[in-house]
Design a protein around this nucleic acid. Structure first.
Ligand SMILES: [Mn+2]
Ligand SMILES: [Mn+2]
Ligand SMILES: [Zn+2]
Ligand SMILES: [Zn+2]
Lengths: 144, 144
DNA sequence: CAACGGATTAGAACGATTCTAAACTGTGAG
DNA sequence: CTCACAGTTTAGAATCGTTCTAATCCGTTG
């Protein structure tokens, strides 16, 4: 058995713990559990509720408040990024690099578009006193 | 006194009434009032609460529920468009044409960027079964 | 000037998120 | 290894934007 790209068993916890320590976050049971789920596979887009359901489904008990706390702490630590596409739910993205999204509103689904794929040209200089923080592109898609 | 670009006095109500009739909406006192405020000047970005405050400030009593109802009805009628840039508030835009936005989160301020100004190239074909509904660009800006 | 169906409204309800304050636990010192 | 403390978790309450309910109101049409 060779070493896979990402740990998926006991090793996941060790990886998550290291990641948390590196980010200056105490590796508590809950944070290790959530980090293991979030960073096990490559790119994920979760809501607080979807992650809460997922961790519960894995037989681990973590309160919803802790899921919210953790998502925000991970975001501040640069491990996640928040994506605003829907008026009623916040999404968190494990891909913190430069990229854009397809958004299928009817399913609440986000799909990554690599950063180099899309080029945004002609962004005017912002009004005096303001500077560009970042440019978000959301390609809203519909069924059929 | 010459005729100005937009009515700002008694004429505003007549203009608004015509606009409502044309959109198939009964011109009630509340809708005429709100339409007058919204379409008096060229382009506006409002939230339900900002519009509610504004109409109240003008000495007219309109319930918050009616403001919400009206914003949605105007949106369905194509008189407004909804803009999603903030996780906690919905914005409505009197500019329904093709254009993009600067968003200054700290002030909750939206600034239009004309549609021809920005070019988005390289949008990939959406996954099978999906079609592009529209492409939104949000240029998030910060102070200084 | 009815009378009818759509519109308005106060207030309750909702759903996502945040807060509170009390119980718990990772950590590092001793 | 144990203790103590600061940081963390949590249940439940609170917030807040938005939507719903069902009673009242009013624009339109005959
Ligand atoms: Mn939505
Ligand atoms: Mn915000
Ligand atoms: Zn993404
Ligand atoms: Zn606009």
């Amino acid at each position: 058995m060779g070493k896979t790209l990402r740990d998926t068993g006991k090793g996941a916890a060790a990886t998550a713990t290291a990641k948390l320590r590196h980010a200056g976050l105490r590796p508590t049971r809950q944070r290790v559990e959530l980090a293991s789920l979030l960073f096990k596979t490559c790119d994920r887009h979760v809501t607080a509720e979807s992650l809460h359901d997922e961790v519960a489904g894995a037989g681990v008990k973590v309160s919803l408040a802790t899921v919210y706390n953790t998502l925000h702490q991970f975001t501040e630590a640069g491990l996640l990024r928040q994506v605003i596409v829907d008026a009623s739910r916040s999404y968190f993205d494990t891909n913190t690099g430069d990229h854009q999204h397809f958004f299928l509103e009817s399913e609440g689904m986000l799909i990554d578009i690599p950063g180099e794929t899309i080029a945004v040209a002609g962004v005017p200089a912002p009004p005096p006193g303001l500077s560009v923080d970042r440019v978000d592109v959301v390609v809203r898609v519909k069924r059929a």
